[in-house]
Amino acid sequence: MADNILAITIGAILVNNFVLSKFLGICPFLGVSKKLSTALGMSGAVVFVMTLSSLVTSLIYKFVLSKSFTINGTAVNLSFLKILVFIVVIASLVQLVEIVLQKFSPPLYQALGIFLPLITTNCAVLGAAELNVQAGRGVLASTIYGFCSALGFALALVLFSSLREKLDLARVPVPLQGTAIGLITAGILAMVFMGFSGLV
């Protein structure tokens, strides 16, 4: 069990990094990486949402959706509702984060702007839930996987935003300014993360 958890942890954070290896969640990765402080805030929000959504979705899947039962003589299995249920849960959690953030950290709320509600459609969050189902993980393993994947996302986001803060001071050729140089940097960063492949 402990071996398995270690494998999940390292695998999710470094080897199969959601952003740099699976290329999920690129939108906030490019959108809120201009400043380290907002990147940290976004990371916190994503870690919260992803961990909790992994927990809740795996619970729902395990105890409701994967079960087959008979009602009025008809066999019923609701696992086809998987995506619908998952997205509703994620959306609710994001709403929750938004409400709490607006109350306790208005500047961060302002800085994250549209990217906060967009966590809902962040494929990384849904991806984690889906991958948990596919891999047949239990509730604990799913939660750990969700948390570690989010940490991987946070790591990528923090590294990238630090790079972009440096890039701000550099003289970038005009055609490459802005997102263009950001994507080039992200590509190089992804190549760096390729070095971890085979670790687990």
């Binding site: 849960v89 409400i99 709490v100 109350k103």
Partner: peptide, 14 residues
């Protein structure tokens, strides 16, 4: 879920 969000929105209203 609506109930949870509703309660939260009330509790943390800005």
């Amino acid at each position: 879920l609506a109930l949870i969000i509703g309660v939260a929105a009330k509790a943390f209203a800005v």
